[in-house]
Amino acid sequence: MNEQIKEITPQEVEEQLSNGKQLNIIDVRENDEVEQGMITVAKHIRMGDIPQRLNELDKGEEYIIVCRSGGRSHNTGVFMQEQGYNVINMVGGMLAWTGDIKTP
């Protein structure tokens, strides 16, 4: 079943951040991937930890889900959407990200 979720490009995310927009970004990559850098305002919750940590998230907010290339974030987004969350998948993932990053 191929669920549809909203999508956003890395360039659109970067543009919104540079315009001062407050974004809720969740990076669902594994720890070793995040060590190579993540979007500065992102929160790291590994994909496998999402079901146990949904209570940390507000269903009234919108979340941009990020992974390495866009596949895991899509799957995570579909799951979260089924749980009633408002999510957007960042297509292309961190492979396509050219903006600022932070390392933990």
Results as ranks from 00 to 15, higher is better:
102 K>G: 07
86 N>F: 09
60 G>V: 00
63 Y>S: 01
20 G>D: 10
16 Q>C: 01
6 K>M: 07
64 I>R: 00
52 Q>K: 13
19 N>H: 12
76 T>Q: 04
84 G>K: 07
75 N>D: 15
22 Q>D: 15
69 S>V: 09
90 M>N: 10
88 I>F: 13
73 S>W: 08
91 V>S: 12
72 R>M: 10
48 G>S: 12
26 I>T: 02
91 V>I: 14
67 C>L: 07
85 Y>P: 06
41 V>T: 14
3 E>V: 11
99 G>H: 09
26 I>W: 11
90 M>P: 01
17 L>R: 02
35 E>N: 15
46 R>I: 01
62 E>F: 00
2 N>V: 09
30 E>H: 05
81 Q>I: 00
71 G>W: 12
98 T>V: 10
96 A>F: 09
72 R>F: 09
29 R>G: 09
98 T>Y: 05
78 V>G: 07
80 M>K: 08
5 I>M: 09
60 G>P: 07
14 E>S: 02
33 E>Y: 13
9 T>S: 15
74 H>T: 14
57 L>I: 03
101 I>W: 13
72 R>A: 11
24 N>V: 05
45 I>F: 00
29 R>T: 08
15 E>R: 15
66 V>D: 02
21 K>H: 10
39 I>N: 03
65 I>K: 03
7 E>K: 11
78 V>F: 03
62 E>K: 12
48 G>P: 02
99 G>N: 13
63 Y>G: 02
24 N>I: 04
78 V>T: 03
17 L>E: 13
58 D>C: 04
77 G>S: 14
76 T>P: 02
75 N>W: 01
66 V>N: 06
64 I>P: 04
46 R>N: 09
48 G>H: 01
89 N>I: 04
10 P>Y: 00
3 E>F: 12
42 A>G: 02
51 P>W: 05
90 M>C: 10
46 R>F: 04
90 M>R: 07
94 M>S: 11
57 L>P: 06
29 R>S: 06
5 I>P: 08
58 D>Y: 09
86 N>P: 06
5 I>V: 14
45 I>T: 08
95 L>Y: 04
90 M>K: 08
21 K>L: 13
79 F>E: 07
78 V>R: 11
3 E>Y: 14
28 V>D: 00
43 K>V: 03
22 Q>F: 08
79 F>V: 03
92 G>S: 11
5 I>A: 05
41 V>D: 03
49 D>S: 12
84 G>I: 08
43 K>A: 02
95 L>T: 05
7 E>N: 10
31 N>M: 09
60 G>D: 15
29 R>Q: 06
63 Y>D: 05
53 R>W: 00
73 S>R: 07
75 N>I: 07
17 L>H: 06
44 H>L: 05
33 E>Q: 12
87 V>R: 05
70 G>L: 12
81 Q>L: 10
72 R>K: 14
90 M>H: 12
